[in-house]
Nucleic acid binder design. Structure first.
Lengths: 237, 237
DNA sequence: GTAATATAGTGCCCAAACGACACTATGTGA
DNA sequence: TCACATAGTGTCGTTTGGGCACTATATTAC
């Protein structure tokens, strides 16, 4: 079938286009654990199962795919996440029993404290430890999506400071290192970690300190946004 | 609008879902130039303009999004490319005058000789120098997509040997280096280049040689496929 | 006060990786 | 057989990163 014939069918509604959705893997860090936001499905199909937050494009209000994701995340958490990035688009004939479907997936990060109060007010949304979520029999192919997002985040934790968005605006380097370690799954060398961060020059010393029982640690915040928050190494020139 | 209400509308055909397409940025290397495959549009909208090859999902024959891309590329080149990878999904209200649309884009590579004979038989398909293509006023947002693909390919050329797929099965290291240089846009250090490739251990010495006026160069081929063809550096452990 | 303890942050060595570039190797053709 | 052209290597100095012991600065115990 050529494009013209297809479009005629499409316009007449005689043709059923693939179901298009948007999903988000929203990570946070809380109590020494990497967690992901899950939503209990209230509709068929897969009713009752837990799923990644997501939904359909609202053609009247959304201008971009990111608008759609952010809108959906706001519905669940009350706020827009400070970091969001397209992950991958999964599509095919088999991933939804209703037929051909496509989902454009995003990875997002947010500080736990930024949305905990909102999440506590609803019962069908929860932060779940990532390792546990991966064994939970999620709806559709969401387990696969979650694993993919986790692996990508792991790569980012190795050479970027994107994981800092899972923390509050101000944070200490030991804190950030613990987040990276939780994502990567093994301890990091303190010196190497700090050297990387210093070279990237993406953090600003706030001048404040925070004590956790020993010598107080310097509080940092992210430098003003400018493109991707990765180290210079593999990007740009 | 919640999901259930949306689906009812959707099933009734009362709702117009975003137009979903798939596009490919197919690169090759020929006569010292990096080229991209373009197709002259024969249908509205944007009729007459050159565009990236692509089209709609055929729900009856395609099982995955990759099937769709490969099918479309076969229509234009006669063969399936040896390398294909999802690039990014562009979507929004403004990119197609018909309204909300989404396109899942792929980057692909192929040897020029593998499809030249087929392409010569049709008039609406052509290999175009990448730099020239980027100034050509392509259809829709295809210029943006092309630039994005080129930048991503550039990154890959810095730490992987994916560009080898723009060459025939057997190739020499000086040849491969020229491809990388064309992609990156500046000369590479011969020794560093060869060191990287040796360490990656992804090429096999065929035992054959090829002369180009001086000392004959060793012919290599890619090692059997296994995942992504990137160097170990940023991937795995 | 002062010592013990806990956490933050630095100095420094060594090994691996990389850029730069001169050198050797091996073919073609005058 | 000698110039030339292209392929491929040796090697040096710099950079990057892991490892680990050291110093720094707070709290807590006595």
């Amino acid at each position: 079938m050529n494009e013209e014939a297809y479009l005629q069918d499409y316009d007449k509604g005689a043709f059923e286009a693939p179901l298009l959705t948007v999903d988000a893997v929203l990570f946070t860090y809380h109590l020494d654990e990497l967690k992901v936001l899950l939503v209990e499905r209230s509709n068929h199909p897969e009713k009752g199962k837990w799923a990644l937050p997501g939904g359909f494009v609202a053609e009247d209000t959304d201008k971009t795919l990111e608008d759609t994701v952010v809108r959906k995340l706001k519905e669940k958490t009350g706020v827009a996440p400070p970091y969001i990035e397209q992950l991958y688009t999964f599509g095919g004939a088999g991933r939804d029993k209703r037929g051909w479907s496509v989902t454009v997936c995003y990875t997002a990060l947010i500080a736990h404290q930024a949305c905990q109060s909102h999440i506590d007010t609803v019962s069908d949304v929860a932060w779940v430890n990532v390792a546990r979520a991966e064994k939970m029999d999620l709806a559709f192919d969401h387990e696969k999506i979650l694993r993919y997002a986790r692996e990508r985040l792991r790569q980012k934790a190795l050479y970027s400071i994107v994981p800092a968005y899972a923390l509050p605006k101000k944070f200490t380097l030991p804190e950030l290192q613990r987040v990276h370690e939780a994502i990567i799954g093994k301890p990091l060398q303190k010196k190497s970690f700090r050297r990387r961060i210093e070279q990237a020059d993406l953090l600003i010393d706030t001048g404040e300190k925070r004590s956790e029982g020993g010598r107080p640690a310097t509080l940092y915040r992210m430098r003003a946004k400018s493109g991707d928050y990765t180290f210079v190494r593999n990007l740009e020139q």
